[in-house]
């Protein structure tokens, strides 16, 4: 699971977190996290984003509040999380037990030329989440720590916020469907059944 740099391979990390995922619903931030969950396996319970930068965690909150009996996982990047830091405060106040946020932190803007993000210069996202009031935060840097993260995601004792330091290499693109209405309709049907498409 380690890249040549000694840091976690982001795709192998994703594969481990999504193994035997049960009824887990997954929102992925735009860019590499969306490609990563798609590389593991595209399916109706995935909601890969193509835009809305800074909104992934809040999409997770809305989904988690609407479906309190299901586990919801947001996988996103450090740049995407940095754009919506207020969400850490908003989510901590709401305290949804079924929501987990995992930041795959490569300390760079990987889609735009590998410019450094603030986490490259010491900004501690897990520390910020802890200060906002998340009851459980984790920093994951080694493969042997990943099973505990996966277990915490499924435990439903959140909200959980985790930072996993990952290798910044750009991996082969594995693109999800690009039609947003389809991505939404398939997830709603997976959650709500055929009634999802009928008049409320």
């Amino acid at each position: 699971m380690l890249a040549a740099s000694g840091k976690l391979d982001r795709r192998e990390l994703c594969r481990a977190l999504l193994a035997d995922r049960g009824d887990l619903l997954v929102v992925a931030g735009l860019g590499a996290p969306a490609w990563d969950i798609t590389a593991v396996g595209d399916r109706a319970e995935n909601f890969p984003l193509w835009g809305g930068m800074g909104g992934a965690a809040m999409i997770g909150l809305g989904l988690a509040l609407a479906q309190p009996a299901r586990r919801v996982l947001v996988i996103t990047g450090d740049g995407e999380m940095l754009m919506g830091l207020g969400a850490l405060a908003t989510i901590a106040v709401q305290r949804p037990a079924n929501l987990s946020i995992v930041v795959q932190d490569n300390e760079h803007y990987g889609e735009t030329g590998m410019q450094e993000t603030h986490t490259r210069h010491g900004v501690d996202l897990a520390g910020m989440a802890k200060a906002a009031g998340f009851p459980r935060t984790m920093l994951v840097t080694r493969p042997e720590e990943v099973p505990a993260l996966r277990a915490a995601i499924h435990a439903g004792e959140g909200p959980l916020f985790a930072v996993a330091k990952v290798d910044p290499s750009t991996l082969p693109l594995v693109l999800p469907p690009r039609e947003g209405a389809y991505l939404q309709a398939r997830l709603r049907e997976a959650v709500l059944g055929p009634a999802a498409h009928h008049q409320l």
Partner: peptide
């Protein structure tokens, strides 16, 4: 904390019904 969070929240809410 800012209104754009609300747009993202409504997106997630609708996904979950």
């Amino acid at each position: 904390t800012t209104e754009e969070e609300g747009i993202a929240l409504l997106q997630g809410a609708w996904l979950g019904g």
